[in-house]
């Protein structure tokens, strides 16, 4: 059977705004992916540990608090430390334009701001999952 694409959706840090991450989790589900949602207030360590145990293809990080510059790159670094940098990391939320190149440079493969069409996000994770699994 075809391998399922598995994606971990997580909210690092302290903000409690989880509508966006839930909408995306639902969209990925409807695109046939298995989405592990870990809930609010996760540390980068929690997220990386869960990603490894769940053997996901990709991680989607959502942050609306402004702490993305601290939290997103740390996830990438911890993955590297655990020899798991094959797991693709993307981010979304309220992220100023000028931060996006810095995040990309830090290993965040894509940054999705408000208004991004869901199909773009779905397409990104489909590509991430199939490039990795196949």
């Amino acid at each position: 059977m075809a391998k399922k694409i598995r994606v971990l959706m997580a909210k690092p840090g302290l903000d409690g705004h989880d509508r966006g991450v839930k909408v995306i989790a639902r969209a990925l589900r409807d695109a046939g992916m298995e989405v592990i949602y870990t809930g609010l207030r996760q540390s980068p360590e929690d997220i990386v540990e869960a990603a490894i145990q769940e053997d996901v293809d990709a991680i989607g990080l959502s942050c609306l608090s402004g702490a993305h510059m601290a939290l997103f790159p740390e996830v990438v670094q911890l993955l590297r430390k655990r020899h798991a940098s094959d797991i693709v990391v993307a981010g979304g939320g309220i992220i100023p334009e000028e931060d996006i190149p810095k995040l990309r440079k830090a290993g965040i493969k894509a940054v999705f701001g408000p208004g991004t069409p869901l199909r773009d996000i779905v397409a990104f994770f489909e590509k991430a999952g199939s490039a990795k699994g196949a």
Partner: peptide, 8 residues
């Protein structure tokens, strides 16, 4: 697809 939420 599925949403797996037990880990929360």
């Amino acid at each position: 697809g599925a949403v797996l939420g037990d880990r929360i």
